[in-house]
Design a protein around this nucleic acid. Structure first.
Length: 572
RNA sequence: GGGCCUGUAGCUCAAUGGUCAGAGCAGGGCGCUCAUAACGCCUUGGUUGGGGGUUCGAGUCCCUCCGGGCCUACCA
């Protein structure tokens, strides 16, 4: 039994996430957390909403709400959807929590104490009518290079030229359209990442087992151009964590807040503290996950995220941890993902293109999505969602291979023996061969799951389901029942036990169906099958069960076509 | 512009430099009748994007060209 700390990249607060966001972090993290728990490990699985920054303020304004209220409501919405998807967080926190305020200010104070903070005076565009500073990309104007009239202050989307906001012709606020803009001086804190470069590089060089996607992005940032750059960790915003040195004021920084990317990863720690608070536990209970000097020495920490998050988790957050000079736990393994694309293009939150988490659940149960997304996780490259592929995969894998297996064996038993595990008979060569095949495949499955090889795990699990159908086909209890009823009883008993076994093995992927299978078998026995032969005797002769409802109804061509039409355009 | 990833069967993907490049789905044939017209068995299908090179041996390593994707530091 080991101790595993697992965090998923925290989803941004400004709306419901789409399936691409889900498969890139929360869902695979949940798979891993569920699997490790089943294997008997102690798991702490933390996620949260990422609530600060300009987009949150603007989304609140658009919704006509104070930003704190908006975030509180959106947090509840995201939490409910996460729960309905079966995401088994030990705690789903908020980056705006008091715990995060205190910890973020603490880290900043330590970094300053250790000389890793510099103050930089810079010029920033201020929108008088909006009453706020604007990030570069929230300024629009005409591109001096190509004449495109909706160029952003950081880059022209039309000609891809990098821009400075002051390059724009007739610049205006992207928020209000106001042209009443001026450049103002403002002072910000910078984290001296450049000075920590060597330590970060050595740390990353030691991670030879990380996905190439993770290390290549990290090394690019470390070595590109002049090397790792210092990063501003404060912003001129109202909503955020006020800049303080620990619990002391930070002279000259009044009215400023920390940059969202500074406080967001710290929320992994704060979220664990929020968990302790919610459980009524003492601080020592969360600190034993995070402080090497308070019990975290035996913790394995794994992070899940989309590739866009990699620089902040390989460089920014570790710089914060290392720079603090305190014995906080650094991540051991970063599992990063490419993107899921939608029917030939990108999922788009702004254009409402693709399927969003709430919509997904409104048309099909969570397990359908969980299975498809995980079995097609974008591990080696981007992967594409199409309705044809979704329908085909789900119907074949879930309805035909697994669902129908459960159906055929339970219904056969009911008709010949009643809804009770039948008695009699003993294993022959076929059963021995099945146990051998199951053992081999289950050990392979464990290996893939241990290494977070998600698509391979799914393929192996499916192959394990197939073994059940192969067995039934060759054992043919409907034939043996006529001549050797005892043998048929043994075959059916084995088949029924396979249902329980499959429920246990599959629960990380399809937890709801897994529960339904165990419930139909009237058992709470979720023991991991270390010994397959023993696992196939968990349901003894005489044990009562019920024939379950159809586990997975098939997706019809009509539904598929309707959904393809419904989700191709703008979200209503 | 620079960097990274990627290109393998109709589709989605596998293959520590080492038998004849493998699975699933789709297609074709046969079987079974317990089951959600489900399941099982067999089977068609590949000049591994093009070209060159290294090697006894290349899908794998190198060069080059072509296609797709991502990142490029004030969105998060």
């Amino acid at each position: 039994m080991a101790r595993h700390l697992i965090t998923s990249a925290i989803p941004y607060i400004n709306g419901i996430k789409h399936l691409g966001n889900l498969v890139g972090s929360q869902l695979p993290a949940d798979l891993y957390a569920r699997y490790l728990r089943e294997r008997g490990h102690e798991v702490m699985f933390i996620c949260a909403t990422d609530e600060h920054g300009t987009p949150a303020e603007l989304a609140a304004r658009k919704a006509g709400q104070p930003v704190a209220i908006y975030c509180a409501e959106m947090h509840q919405v995201q939490a409910a959807i996460a729960r309905d998807f079966g995401l088994s967080f030990d705690h789903f926190g908020r980056s705006s929590s008091e715990r995060n305020h205190v910890l973020t200010q603490h880290f900043a104070g330590k970094l300053d104490e250790n000389g890793w903070i510099t103050e930089v005076e810079e010029s920033q565009v201020y929108s008088v009518d909006d009453g706020r500073f604007l990030p570069d990309r929230y300024i629009e104007g005409t591109c001096p290079n190509c004449g495109y009239d909706k160029a952003r202050g950081d880059q022209c989307e039309n000609c891809t030229k990098q821009l400075d906001p002051t390059d724009l012709i007739e610049p205006r606020s992207a928020v209000s359209g106001s042209t009443n803009l001026e450049v103002r001086k403002t002072k910000h804190l910078y984290l001296r990442q450049s000075a920590l470069k060597q330590q970060l590089a050595e740390w990353i060089d030691g991670k030879s087992d990380w996905p190439i996607l993770t290390t290549s992005i990290a090394k690019k940032w470390l070595n590109d151009g002049d090397g790792l750059q210092d990063r501003g960790i404060t912003r001129d915003l109202d909503w955020g964590i006020p800049v303080k040195k620990g619990d002391k004021p930070w002279p000259g920084m009044e009215g400023k807040v920390f940059y969202v990317w500074f406080d967001a990863p710290i929320e992994y720690i704060a979220g664990t503290a929020e968990w302790a608070d919610a459980q009524g536990r003492p601080d020592s209970d969360w600190r034993r996950w995070w402080r090497l000097d308070e019990g975290a020495g035996d913790v394995t920490y794994t992070q899940f995220m989309g590739k866009d998050n990699v620089p902040f988790h390989t460089l920014g957050f570790p710089a914060t941890i290392i720079g603090s000079g305190e014995p906080w736990k650094l991540v051991d393994y970063i599992k990063s993902f490419n993107y899921l694309t939608y029917d030939g293009g990108q999922f788009s939150t702004s254009q409402g293109r693709g399927v969003f988490m709430d919509q997904a659940l409104s048309i099909l149960p969570a397990d359908y999505w969980r299975w498809w997304l995980l079995s097609h996780a974008p591990e080696s490259g981007d992967s594409e969602f199409t309705w044809d592929n979704f329908q085909q995969s789900v119907n074949k894998d879930l309805a035909d291979v697994l669902g129908n297996f459960v159906s055929r064996i339970t219904k056969f038993c009911r008709s010949k023996f009643g809804e009770t595990v039948p008695e009699g008979g003993s294993y022959g060569p076929e059963e021995e061969a099945l146990i051998e095949a199951l053992t081999s495949r289950i050990r392979a499955y464990e290996g893939f799951m241990d290494h977070m090889e998600i698509r391979k795990s799914a393929a192996e699990l499916r192959a394990i389901w197939v073994l059940g159908n192969e067995y039934l086909q060759s054992a043919a209890p409907w034939s043996t029942f006529k001549t050797e009823p005892e043998r048929a009883a043994m075959q059916v008993r084995l088949g029924l036990n396979l249902i329980r076994l499959y429920a246990v093995l599959s629960s990380a992927f399809i937890p709801f169906a897994s529960d339904a299978m165990l419930s139909a078998m009237r058992t709470d026995n979720r023991d991991w099958p270390d010994d397959i032969r023993a696992a196939l005797q968990a349901l003894p002769a005489g044990h009562a069960f019920i024939v379950p409802e159809v586990l997975f109804a098939k997706i019809s061509d009509e539904s598929r076509d309707e959904w393809r039409e419904r989700f191709k355009g703008i979200r209503g």
